[in-house]
Design a protein around this nucleic acid. Structure first.
Length: 287
DNA sequence: CTGGATGCCTGGGAGC
DNA sequence: TGCTCCCAGGCATCCA
């Protein structure tokens, strides 16, 4: 199972770039009409899927990946829960296959395929790079660059829990359930605390923890493309080491206490009651 | 406006 | 062994 958050999407972007950028899309096929949306609500035609156009760049903001055509139009891919974008070597044909909802045949002969069994992901066709900038400007800053001041500005008056706030893509783009828990553990902030109770120093601590968590995961190649990375001779490095995610009931790696699992905003949440106390730790005055 | 709850969707694991 | 149940979670949409 893969859960594409920012590091996984960034890994996809990096590994797709050499195969896609500069290439012309000879043919594009959409196997499910509801898998691609246009701003006008009309069905996506081959033109919206960039057929006949040249890929100028692959850009990412948060968990969104944009294929920018030299001719102007843009196609945004969201991997959702189980989405995979893969390139297969020359020779493969555009044939219908299990859970593959869109395919692009490149002038190199390679085939780009979007597979998504659960279909939480999808494609959005935009008319221009301007509309892409507009779309991304409405979201929060990218998780790799967000500052403590930006977090505080966007969520500092919210009574929502800090965990739920971190999952809000309009606050910070790219953080999902795994890295939200990991970043809060690293920053030693209790996930249940209302965002409005965080102090400026804690927002800075949190921004730093988000950077470190995401950067480490990007360096490890994420987890989505593990098989692909193995094929490139990088086995094992992609295995993310999670301190809290999925470890409810197990001992904390830092203090040994049992990690606690709760549901927050409908999501499984794990934290250490010892390292992430509900109240801020006060320095004990030495007698 | 805010925040909580729900539904979408399928594979896999738990439990009987 | 085979069946059912339920959970995983990003995101849209609903309601209080």
């Amino acid at each position: 199972l893969c859960v594409p958050e920012l590091p996984e999407v960034e890994t996809v972007r990096r590994t797709l770039t050499p195969a896609l950028v500069g290439r012309r899309i000879a043919r594009a096929v959409l196997h499910r009409a509801d898998f691609c949306q246009t701003s006008g609500g009309k069905p996506c035609r081959p033109r919206e899927l960039l057929q006949g156009m040249r890929v100028a760049a692959l850009e990412r903001h948060g968990k969104q990946l944009a294929l920018i055509a030299a001719e102007g139009p843009v196609l945004v891919a969201q991997l959702g829960m189980t989405g995979q974008l893969t390139v297969t070597a020359a020779g493969a044909g555009i044939t219908p296959s299990d859970h593959i909802h869109a395919q692009w045949l490149l002038d190199s002969g390679s085939l780009l395929r979007f597979r998504d069994p659960r279909r939480f992901g999808g494609l959005s066709a935009l008319p221009s790079v301007d509309s892409l900038r507009e779309r991304w400007a409405a979201m929060g800053p990218d998780g790799l660059r967000v500052t403590g001041a930006e977090l505080a500005d966007r969520a500092g008056r919210s009574r929502r829990s800090i965990k739920v706030v971190l999952l809000d893509q309009e606050v910070v783009a790219g953080v999902g359930n795994i890295y939200a828990d990991e970043a809060l553990f690293l920053a030693r902030i209790n996930p249940l605390r209302a965002a409005a109770t965080l102090r400026p120093a804690e927002w800075e601590l949190l921004a730093d923890a988000i950077h470190r968590t995401l950067t480490a995961a990007v360096a490890a190649g994420g987890s989505t493309l593990r098989d692909y990375m193995d094929a490139l001779g990088m086995p094992g490095r992609a295995q993310a080491h999670h301190a809290v995610y999925g470890r409810g009931g197990e001992p904390c790696l830092a203090c040994g206490r049992g990690l606690k699992g709760v549901r927050l905003g409908g999501r499984a949440t794990v934290y250490c009651p010892g390292c992430q106390p509900r109240r801020r730790l006060r320095l004990v005055k030495e007698a």
